[in-house]
Amino acid sequence: MKSIKILERLLAAIPIMIGVAILVFLFVRLTPGDPVDLMMGSAGSVSQQEIQALQEEFDLDKPLHVQLYIFLKDVVRGDLGDSFTQREPVTDIIGRALPATIELAFGAAFFAVLFAIPIGVYSAVKQNSITDRLSMAFSFLGISMPAFWFGIILIIVFGVKLGWLPISGRLDYGFNFPSVTGLYLIDTVLARDWPALKNAVLHLILPSIALGMQLLAVLARVTRSSMLEVLRQDYVTLARAKGLREFIVIVKHALRNALIPTITVLGIQIGVLLGGNMIIETVFAWPGLGRLAVDSIFSRDFPLIQGVVMIYAFTYVIANLVVDVLYTYINPKITL
């Protein structure tokens, strides 16, 4: 039953993706700047023939509707075209960058959830205590602090001054393990290459903290306020009246309910984490989609921009679906 609904939702994503494809195709061509010009750069003596040859190679000489037709026809077959600048299939380029972004997004979400929920719960249980006030003040700081600035601070303190953690890239040189999923944390485990795993984890820590800090702050606040609401409910009193220990009352009876809003926010934010980390990826030289997006926009690499945007849209759809499925497990009143 549930799997049929999930399949339905995936099928419903197809028209959305086609819509996204058309929109991004048009917007990319509406923005000023010509890819061929940029590619020639300041080479100086470029002949008209050379320019024409390039335009032909990229189909840029054809009328717009023909270009769109070619593009959509390829998209349906799972072909996003070749990158203008890298002369390589866009799918291959994205295939290398996407796992990096996913790994970072999950690292950030993991960091945020790991701390936000205990902080939120504790603050609610000890409402108005010093701990509560302090953590809420810090969460306010976390929300208002720009992520790139925080990232730079982390780099300076933990990378440069203390030298505890690596500050750029996903891995040091010299490691070699087969790429199965592209997610280093999984691939290293599959290869049982523990030093590489440790190295990948260390690389993940600072960017995850930088990217996840705002989410941590938001989730802590959401968890606190929904927990405060839930703790006032009759079913919590009933749990106590049954003779349960306070810890069980809070973690089992109250938290399960309080997490519903937290998961909603997390679901929305996961999309943001996947799509909004261009700055963090740039700061930490993280070879992910964000950096790819920035580079492709600067070079007007149309196929690459289109591919990146479509992948963003797709991951967003998937993230939402995952959250909705998760939702049905945590809130029995909701079905897909």
Binding site: Q233, D234, Y235, T237, L238, A239, R240, A241, K242, G243, L244, R245, H253, R256, N257, I330, N331, P332, K333
Partner: peptide, 24 residues
């Protein structure tokens, strides 16, 4: 008190709609 609650003394609450935990 925990040992007494629910075992020797049990309570039935006023509003059934809000007293059962919705997620269990």
């Amino acid at each position: 008190m925990r040992d007494i609650r629910g075992k020797d003394i049990a309570m039935i609450f006023q509003d059934p709609m809000t007293t059962l935990n919705p997620v269990f």
